Structure formats: structure tokens, C-alpha cells
Computed example of a mutant assay.
Amino acid sequence: MSNDVAYPVFRYPDRAFALRTARRLVEFGRCGHSVVSAYAELSSFADVQAVAQAVPRGSFCGASAVEEFEGVPFEDQPSFLVGVSASDLPAEEAAYEGRLPVEWEVWGLPVGSIEDDLTAVIGPNVGLVNWQSLQWPAAPEAGFHGEATHAEVTLLFNTRTRELDGPTGDHTVLVHVRSIVCDGRQAGEPYAHWVAAQVGLAVTGPAQRS
């Protein structure tokens, strides 16, 4: 089983500009079966409502204390804490007391279906957009043979790491390649540099592993 490794190639305080930059990489590797997924940690009732209206697809899951439902079967826990659709979200703000941040996620949608809407409403919340099933082309002259399994692009909102540390006041674009470790060194890194360079970008920081 193989793994990916991601490298930052762009960071900027304007969300829309960061999205446009990420799309340059996506379009370089996009193919017929490419998809997009997204995740966000929504810190207020207003933020949940904004995302639910702008991007109604996906699942919303309220927070709970570590031991709050210990021993309670999954199917007997409140639906809001298991995951509900936008249409089933509690309508009253009081229902969110002790349930923030609300996690929202959506998987495997067509490229271009949610990115603009989420970028417009994510606000100061931490989140990400991840484009998967891309195809990095081969570059035999540079020793690169192409990559599909781990060809991805991620746009991090208000954070700089895949662990979603933060929040920060900027947004980071990551390019993913296959992780190949030889003698303790990441042999896949030159491919990330090459991919980034094809759209006028450059690796700006150390590897981020999953």
C-alpha cells in the first residue's frame, strides 16, 4: 500500500485568489474521473447556516464531549451528532449550544460543483478543498513516469497544514505526489517541484505527510 506526500506551493490571504491558483494545478492534472471533496469546521450558528444555504450537499455533524455518549449505541445517539443533511439541521440557535464546532464534509462530487460557493462562505473557519483522481503526466526526460493514484491538489482555508492547525490569516495550496522514501529521504519530492513548475509555481515548504 502506497501513501502520498504533499508540498505547499502557494500561500495568500485572499481566498478567491488562492482558489484560482489551486485550479491552475487542478486543470494541469484533471481527467475524466477527477472529483472534489471538502471539509470545514464551522464555529458559529451563522457559519453553519451560511454553508448549508450555499452548499446544501454533504453531512453536518455537531460536536459532543468525549464521554457524553459513552456506551450508547451509535444508532441511539442524536442524529445531529451522527451526521445530518442541510435540510435536517436544527433551526434554532439554542440547539447548537455545546455542539460547536460543527463539522461539515462532502465527498466525490464533480470538479467545479462546490468550490466557488464554499470559498465565498467559509469565512474565518478552518477547512479544505481536495481534488482527487488527477493525473500528473510523465516527464521521461526528467525521470518522472506519471502519477494517478496520488495525484491530488488541496486548498487549505485558514490553516497551513493537513492537520488543520490554526486558524491563520491565509490560505495554502498543496500539491500531492506519491511518497517514495529512500535512505530516509523523500525521493518523490523532485516530481512535486516539476508539477508545480509547470503552472508557474514552486515548492515553498517541507513535506506534509498524511
Rank of each mutant, 00 (worst) to 15 (best):
R99C: 12
C182F: 04
T172N: 01
V82H: 08
L42S: 13
P78C: 05
V177K: 04
D47I: 00
R99E: 03
A16M: 11
D76E: 12
S85W: 00
G108P: 00
F60I: 09
D165F: 05
P73S: 00
S43R: 15
V35T: 13
A86C: 12
V26I: 10
A46Y: 00
P137R: 09
V102H: 01
G98H: 09
A65H: 06
S43Y: 11
L174S: 11
T149N: 08
T172L: 06
E189Q: 15
Y96Q: 02
V66W: 06
D165L: 08
L201I: 07
T154W: 08
E27F: 06
S133T: 01
V72Q: 07
D4S: 14
V102K: 01
G62E: 04
V195M: 11
C182H: 09
V181Y: 13
L89G: 08
L174C: 06
N158Y: 05
T21I: 14
A91M: 03
D14F: 12
N125W: 02
H176V: 10
E41C: 08
A192M: 05
Q49E: 13
V106F: 03
V48S: 14
H176I: 09
W107K: 13
V177G: 11
S59H: 00
G32K: 09
G169C: 05
T154N: 05
G112C: 14
S79I: 01
G58Y: 11
A139Q: 12
S210C: 08
V55T: 12
H150S: 07
E67S: 11
E105Q: 07
D4E: 14
V26P: 02
R23G: 10
P124Y: 00
R209H: 05
V175G: 04
E75C: 02
S43F: 10
A52P: 10
V199W: 14
A197P: 04
L156R: 04
D14S: 13
Q135D: 09
P73E: 00
P13E: 11
F45L: 04
N125F: 07
W104Q: 08
Y12W: 07
L134P: 07
Q77S: 00
H171R: 11
W104M: 07
A46P: 02
L155F: 07
V129M: 15
G123Q: 14
R160H: 13
A65E: 12
H150F: 15
E152P: 06
P206G: 15
W131I: 02
V36K: 01
V36M: 02
L201E: 13
G108D: 15
Q49N: 11
V82L: 13
A65L: 13
Y96K: 03
V199P: 11
G184H: 07
A91E: 13
F28V: 01
V175H: 05
G127C: 03
D165T: 12
F10T: 07
N130W: 11
R185T: 15
V173L: 04
Q186D: 14
Q198R: 15
A65R: 12
V199H: 14
L155E: 05
T161R: 12
G143Q: 02
G166T: 05
A63D: 08
P78M: 01
Q208V: 03
V175R: 03
T204E: 09
E67K: 10
S85V: 09
